[in-house]
């Protein structure tokens, strides 16, 4: 057990930076969870377009961002774009990169959920005189969001875990600060064990929140 006491002293001394890193992690997580969901809904709406070309472009977008490693996209924007004269902050790159990537995944989840909804309900809504956008907002979206819930909440968990890669573009989030701590006290095992436990704790909170949301949002009658 020797070493744990001095380890926690190190952690305590480095606490402000760790807390700052945790704050940055949660900031990025919160932003991309919201923008990724909104983006996913917009892409999904495009995917339902009556225009064949719009649908094809949307399919292309989704395939591209699901098929490209996110880290490549982040490097392209962070290290590549400055060569064309465009300089973006690490946070801006992270938000843009994650949003485009997460939106593609969320759109995929929504599109497969769409297969589970009943076309006759959409026809009924059109017959009542709702506009295309109203049919989407009032019938299609509430139903697909419910059906896609497991995929969407899983994506939220991934957002949290995957945010740890952005230290590679100089965004000083939690994982970056923990690496810094390890570089100072050489206690790699303890530092990364603690790091893992903190992520586990955060993910558990997200899972609890997701379960709560699913219970709230899915009335008994709709759980089929």
């Amino acid at each position: 057990m020797t070493g744990w006491l001095s380890f926690f002293q190190d952690v305590f001394e480095y606490w402000p930076q760790i807390l700052g890193g945790l704050g940055n992690t949660l900031l990025l997580f919160a932003i991309v969870t919201v923008t990724g969901l909104i983006g996913g809904i917009l892409v999904f709406y495009q995917a339902l377009s009556p225009n064949r070309h719009v649908r094809r472009i949307t399919e292309g977008y989704i395939s591209f961002f699901i098929g490209t490693p996110l880290i490549v996209l982040l490097f392209l924007m962070y290290y590549g774009l400055p060569q064309t004269g465009i300089h973006l902050s690490p946070l801006a790159v992270a938000v843009i990169g994650f949003t485009m990537n997460v939106a593609a995944y969320n759109a995929r989840y929504l599109m497969s959920a769409y297969n589970g909804i009943d076309a006759s309900e959409l026809e009924a809504a059109r017959a009542q005189g709702f506009s295309t956008l109203q049919v989407f907002r009032l019938v299609t979206l509430p139903q697909t969001l419910r059906l896609a819930m497991p995929g969407l909440t899983n994506q939220v968990i991934l957002n949290l875990k995957d945010s740890s890669i952005v230290f590679l573009i100089q965004y000083t989030e939690f994982f970056a600060q923990m690496q810094e701590l390890a570089a100072r006290n050489f206690q790699y095992f303890k530092v990364y064990l603690l790091t893992g436990l903190v992520y586990l704790l955060l993910v558990s909170l997200v899972v609890l929140a997701a379960r709560w949301l699913e219970r709230r949002v899915l009335p008994a009658a709709c759980r089929t």
């Binding site: 006759s120 309900e121 809504a125 059109r126 019938v139 419910r146 009335p219």
Partner: peptide, 16 residues
């Protein structure tokens, strides 16, 4: 369409 009520074979109630 708002002046024409439409009733379908499969009911087509909004299930949510």
């Amino acid at each position: 369409r708002q002046q024409i009520g439409f009733v379908f074979q499969q009911f087509a109630l909004y299930r949510h």
